[in-house]
């Protein structure tokens, strides 16, 4: 009995699959390395951050300085960051996710402080 010569794929499916798994593992390792590098960079900046916290007096992040409880979420009310009542959740979507409409476009004029 002789075998016929046939064209066969160079790689068996198992090898290709395990290769794909290995690539994913490499991806995970790259993410880990990226995380380590970023953490190291962040740690180097930690003293500057601490100085900023001492000066600003709060570690609240400047990312919702237009929300109802304004900039200092942790100081607005100690038992709840949201002003109405203890344990009240914030309103959604404003204050949490979306800008309010510009009050300049309202039909009734509103002004705050000097024009």
């Amino acid at each position: 009995m002789t075998s016929t010569v046939r064209r066969r794929s160079r790689f068996r499916p198992a090898a290709l699959f395990l290769g794909a798994l290995a690539l994913l593992a490499v991806g995970l390792c790259l993410c880990y390395a990226h995380g380590i590098k970023a953490a190291r960079h962040s740690a180097e900046q930690a003293p500057l951050r601490e100085i900023a916290v001492r000066i600003v007096g709060s570690s609240d992040l400047a990312i919702y300085n237009a929300a109802r409880y304004l900039r200092h979420v942790t100081l607005t009310d100690v038992s709840t960051p949201f002003q109405e009542c203890p344990g009240c959740f914030d309103y959604f979507p404003e204050a949490m996710s979306a800008n309010p409409p510009g009050f300049n476009e309202l039909s009734t004029q509103m002004s705050f402080g000097a024009p």
């Binding site: 009995m1 002789t2 075998s3 016929t4 046939r6 066969r8």
Partner: peptide, 11 residues
């Protein structure tokens, strides 16, 4: 396995 299968298919 491939060799064995080749032989059988030829047979």
């Amino acid at each position: 396995i491939d060799e064995r299968v080749d032989a059988l298919l030829h047979m």
